[in-house]
Design a protein around this nucleic acid. Structure first.
Length: 270
DNA sequence: ACGCAGACCTGTACGC
DNA sequence: TGCGTACAGGTCTGCG
């Protein structure tokens, strides 16, 4: 489900409401997360600190009452995961997988498809994702061109590879390529520097715009308050099979590429 | 280095 | 209404 803008939305919201709240306990509901049971003693009594996005993960920091970090909980929401900031007395949400009891309130992790993961990290070096974050200053046209040098991978698949750029998913990869007029089939290694400059610019513009609208809810996404994102109305090609391209009037098509749907307009993307 | 199939899961939309 | 099929925002493993 969530890509960079959705994860950023959740992280920013939780960063407004979680820091300073004490962790009272841990409830593991899903047997797939049973390995977290052992964490309960280490979490109890900690205080939540800043919440950040790392790639597509939401990272909660847990601090000793004294003032040094005890560790980080890195949550990957995958397709249908949600982190919901709930009142203590609220009824259980559907598909509850994990709960952090807080003072006050509680943080519920729900996940319909159960693909989501939760990791306990104690080494700060493991907090950073392997790839370049599209919104960081280090993500320059030259850096992108350097990463892609020699690659024959189709641009769409290249953008989805999290080891190079971290944060893009299917929706935003399709939207960015359309905004740039680049075909998803173009070999990544054959782009010119000016293509990367355009791609970098559009990538940042679209991601920032989506963050401003709290992400895209095409199906499942909800933020930490259970509210849907409003960027869906801005989508130009994703999910628009047979629709008219808003730029050239051509017809948006869907095809399967690297096992994923690719939506694009052959009229203006080449 | 790359594509591809299959796996992990559950829910929904659609055609018959 | 009911049943089968395809598809879903992610990522991993194994194979060719």
């Amino acid at each position: 489900m969530p890509e960079l803008p959705e994860v950023e939305t959740v992280a920013r919201q939780l960063d407004q409401t979680l820091p300073g709240r004490r962790v009272g306990g841990l409830l593991v509901v899903d047997a797939k997360l049973a390995q977290l049971e052992a964490l309960a003693p280490r979490l109890a009594g900690t205080v939540l600190g800043p919440v950040r996005r790392s790639g597509k993960r939401v990272v909660l920091s847990l601090w000793e009452a004294g003032g040094s970090p005890r560790g980080w909980l890195a949550v990957h929401l995958r397709m249908t995961g949600r982190l919901l900031d709930m009142d203590r007395e609220a009824p259980d949400p559907a598909h509850l997988r994990l709960r952090l009891w807080l003072e006050p309130g509680r943080l519920d992790f729900t996940d319909t498809r159960r693909f989501g993961t939760v990791e306990w990290l104690t080494d700060p070096a493991t907090l950073r994702p392997p790839g370049l974050d599209p919104l960081e200053a280090a993500c320059t046209a030259a850096a992108l061109a350097g990463l892609a040098a020699g690659s024959r991978a189709p641009l769409k698949a290249w953008l989805l590879d999290q080891s190079r750029i971290t944060g893009l998913g299917n929706i935003y990869a399709c939207e960015i390529l359309h905004a740039c007029g680049l075909s998803p089939h173009r070999p990544a290694g054959r782009l010119r520097l000016e293509d990367w400059a355009l791609l970098r610019r559009e990538m940042r513009r679209i991601l920032r715009l989506a963050i401003r609208h709290c992400g895209t809810t095409f199906r499942d996404f909800q933020d930490s308050r259970g509210v849907e994102g409003s960027f869906a109305g801005f989508l130009q090609v994703y999910g628009q099979t047979g629709g008219a391209c808003r730029r050239c009037g051509g017809t948006v098509i869907r095809e399967t590429q690297s096992q994923r749907g690719s939506w694009w307009c052959p009229g203006c993307q080449s």
